[in-house]
Design a protein around this nucleic acid. Structure first.
Lengths: 160, 160
DNA sequence: AGAGGCAATGTTATCTTGTAACAAAATTGG
DNA sequence: CCAATTTTGTTACAAGATAACATTGCCTCT
């Protein structure tokens, strides 16, 4: 078999075949856009690749810098629009604590409540699924932001 | 007895005696600072009052505007420093999705995981306690951000 | 009281992040 | 092909946040 259905939820914190992540996620993005009719235009596709290759949260202006190097645009709305598209379609997430964006490693599994583990040592962010516990009744939740900052295993050891 | 230990967790969304919230929270803040040796200086105290009176998330510049009206300062660091102090001491919280700050209604109950319900209809924010579900092992969580955006009961009715 | 140290404030300037608004081009659907 | 819609290009700014350094006030020790 080619790869597991449910890989290590913290693989972001370990060495792993990252090209694999990139190609898998790009293929998933193509499928998602094809089936929903959304248009994965060149800039949008490239921004997704940049996020995937970066493999860490990137600010909108970091992304814009990359686009500029490649002649794909140098004005803020270029980056913000592409990032907005990716977030709207579940292909990327915004990390509120960091004012940054990260590619979604498994966009086809969406609908789940995503949560993010942010290592303050190495800056790595892992996306995990975490259903919120019961909140009080009488409030209709539409979207959640769940982010946990702390230390990954490797950085915990280094700090000890 | 003067008041309940555990009032309606969603009281933010209902009419309630708000002066009561303010005086209770200010008294709690005084106690917390006194016992920890932190100094609740005039600007810090006034910023906390402003947040409590506003009773909703306020941007740093909203707060600064109020301070300016009162001759307490007109430069960004004045507001950011006071807000930073309040957040560090658990007297206020930062709402990441809104780039805004809100007073903590029950600062003496801290240590809990706070979560915020943000109504996109009326802009009201309620703080509730919510313990995060089990995240994967191997990551030491130090701080969490849990924010849920949606509609409160009143705004849900209005929209129907 | 005076001196030294530290916490808090005052101020300047700048940096980062994000968006409104409108014109031009490309794509889609009839 | 034409019209409608979406996407892109661009200008200009709004909003949010902090670095750095000077100054003031507060506490403590002798």
């Amino acid at each position: 078999m080619a790869h597991e259905k449910n890989p290590d939820p913290l693989r972001e914190f370990h060495p792993h075949n990252h090209d694999h992540c990139v190609s898998d996620a790009m293929a998933a993005a193509e499928r998602i856009c094809a089936s929903s009719g959304a248009r994965l235009t060149p800039v949008r596709r490239r921004v997704l690749e940049i996020l995937l290759e970066g493999h860490r949260p990137m600010g909108a202006y970091d992304v814009l810098g990359r686009l500029d190097e490649e002649g794909l645009g140098d004005k803020p709305p270029v980056a913000y629009r592409a990032l907005g598209f990716l977030v709207d379609h579940g292909l990327a997430h915004r990390i509120e604590r960091l004012n940054a964006f990260i590619a979604c490693p498994h966009p086809e599994a969406e609908g789940h409540g995503a949560a993010f583990l942010i290592c303050r040592g190495c800056g790595t962010v892992a996306e995990v699924t975490a259903t919120l516990p019961d909140l009080p009744e009488g409030f209709r939740v539409e979207r959640t932001t769940v982010e946990a900052e702390g230390l990954c295993a490797a950085c915990t050891e280094k700090a000890a």
